[in-house]
Design a binder for these strands. Structure first.
Lengths: 353, 353
DNA sequence: GTGAAAGCGCTAACAC
DNA sequence: GTGTTAGCGCTTTCAC
């Protein structure tokens, strides 16, 4: 590596060309790996590149090409482990194919989601991985459709007539949760979630309910779905318990719900699993270190990312055909927050920790 | 909005120009807000833009300009709340100034960090916000320096002779933690951390130690610093407690350490704060819902992001002068995990829950 | 095998 | 006031 006290203008392909005594076109060919270049010249080009520390300008390069080697990723938020991992995976997969990932957060706003998409369209990204705020029927997907963008929908989606979709198999996971809870003897379960993310929540709910009822038709399943945000959910929950409802287990359909449930338990001095059991959709690192550890459904982030990118690149490369709707299997992690009812439920919040 | 069944080529500035009956240059001027354009023509341009749904191609635009309106952000990871929030903030601040943020994760690897930086350099980003894996003396900062890139260093940094730095005032926060713990009567405290992130950890450690010793010179402060990763820390901690060491409080200098401490407590059946107190650097959402809630130092993410972007843009706009080293104040959130020693320490892990 | 020429979509001088 | 010209740095025919 030559020691360049670099400042100002970086060497361009023409600098390399003149130093190697060839034309810019030849340099471009050498870099593209075209074999028809005389080995001797190729070597001189490589030498010049090395000496100058030359690197192609991806912008200029993309400018000329048909497709730009940029993938856009739109997530509802960056703050959670799930989407953090997702972006990390997507970034790495995009890189592997020589693409740059440009990630943006819609901050749980459909309006912003559409704006971001418009901006990505301006950038003429080759493809988009969209994790919609709500579901596949939002304005963002419509925008993509209307503008002929190529993309894949992930996470809060079930299936779409225009785009491939990839998400966790929530229904199957929920069914497994049902089997576990019923198996442990629970016959009164509260399910909490956010109605806004309609399709996915429905799947999780139905998966749980049908399996639970199949196992024991007399089981009682209460459901609290908050419309938009998490705070109303907290209020409803507080109200629900305040009315004297005493399910033996709570299944939260989303991470924030798990947090809310825990804090409400805490408020009442209930402990898991003696006073009540808890399972949450979505795992988090802290769940295995709390007292007790919280049982959770682990989403296959990596699988979703890999599958999404595979599908996306297939479309980018021009593959036609009906959109597919993939469901990747989850893993249910049993932990101590789930026990059998009757081992001292609601023993009165003995306040030892 | 005209209903365009968009496919293939988007309208270019020339399409707008010909439709408006002016030249491309005029369109460009109108969009740039130049006032010397005849109002009538300006109007026709606006109309054409609207009818065609025209939007500038930022790539092409940046291509021609001197500086590209792209800011690179490099974080050690995306999975934690802290960096997730940071990216969200940075993205929003960049947008406000008409820039696009391209975020990348170095995945805690200095080697990868340098590669990413090289790629950002290829992109000719206007500036970089770098949260280094280790500290300001790593290869990434050196690369930036050698290539005359403009940037700001954040988080795991103290000060630098080439770049502005912004980080949380760990020392002051740690001093406050010391005041609190000593104030509660703790005279034997274990501090845990990662040695790799040298400078910041030192600052936190020194801040704590000097304040604690100032308050009570006889206080005993044990320190466990794992070299590189968190797992050895767990082993050391297990060993430490296994030897029969019984501090009345633990101060973890990093989030993962807090998790490790909790899980080790748990393994031994200890509960906070009765058996041992715990404070961690870095807050997380779950910490307020566990039993008990975990006391934590909250980093001023937003302030750091704002300050970093201010400094960065000032440099981008050509401001010269000595690099500054900013420290933003933290907030110490007292929660139930901290109590007074002697209220039943090590009472023997009564295994309720 | 290689280079000249054209041009991706835009903006900035500089004429007119 | 506005259009012409000349690129930004690259890739891609298409002659030679």
């Amino acid at each position: 590596m030559a020691h360049r006290e670099a400042r100002q203008r970086r060497p361009s392909i023409h600098d390399v060309a003149s130093r190697a005594g060839v034309s810019a076109a030849t340099v471009s060919k050498v870099m593209a790996g075209v074999t028809t270049v005389k080995p001797e010249n190729a070597q001189r080009v490589f030498d010049a590149i090395e000496q100058l520390g030359y690197r192609v300008d991806p912008l200029a390069s993309d400018m000329r090409r048909a497709k730009r080697r940029i993938i856009g990723a739109i997530m509802p938020e960056f703050e959670s482990e799930f989407f953090g991992q997702m972006v990390t995976q997507l970034e790495s997969l995009a890189e592997q194919r020589g693409y740059t990932l440009v990630a943006a957060s819609s901050r749980e706003s459909e309006e912003r989601e559409k704006e971001i998409l418009a901006r990505m369209h301006d950038w003429r990204v080759a493809g988009v991985v969209l994790a919609p705020v709500r579901n596949e029927h939002g304005p963002a997907a419509a925008f993509m459709k209307a503008n002929g963008m190529t993309g894949v929908l992930i996470d809060r989606v079930l299936s779409d007539d225009a785009f491939d979709t990839v998400s966790a198999d929530s229904a199957a996971a929920s069914a497994e949760v049902a089997r576990m809870l019923v198996g442990k003897g629970h016959r009164h379960v509260l399910v909490i979630g956010l109605a806004e993310q309609a399709a996915t929540v429905r799947a999780r709910l139905d998966g749980f309910r049908s399996q639970a009822l199949a196992l024991d038709p007399s089981i009682r399943i209460d459901v609290i779905l908050s419309e938009v945000s998490v705070e109303p959910l907290r209020a409803s929950l507080r109200d629900y318990f305040g009315r004297g409802e005493r399910p033996t287990a709570v299944y939260s359909l989303l991470l924030k719900g798990t947090l809310v449930a825990l804090s409400e338990f805490r408020r009442r001095g209930w402990h898991c699993p003696n006073d009540i059991s808890l399972v949450g959709f979505d795992d988090a690192e802290w769940m295995q270190v709390t007292w007790p550890a919280i049982a959770a459904v682990v989403q296959p982030v990596r699988q979703i990312a890999i599958e999404a990118m595979n599908l996306l690149f297939r479309r980018i490369e021009g593959e036609e055909g009906q959109p597919t709707a993939r469901l990747e299997p989850c893993q249910v992690l049993m932990r101590e927050s789930v026990g059998s009812p009757g081992n001292g439920p609601h023993s009165g919040g003995g306040d030892r920790q």
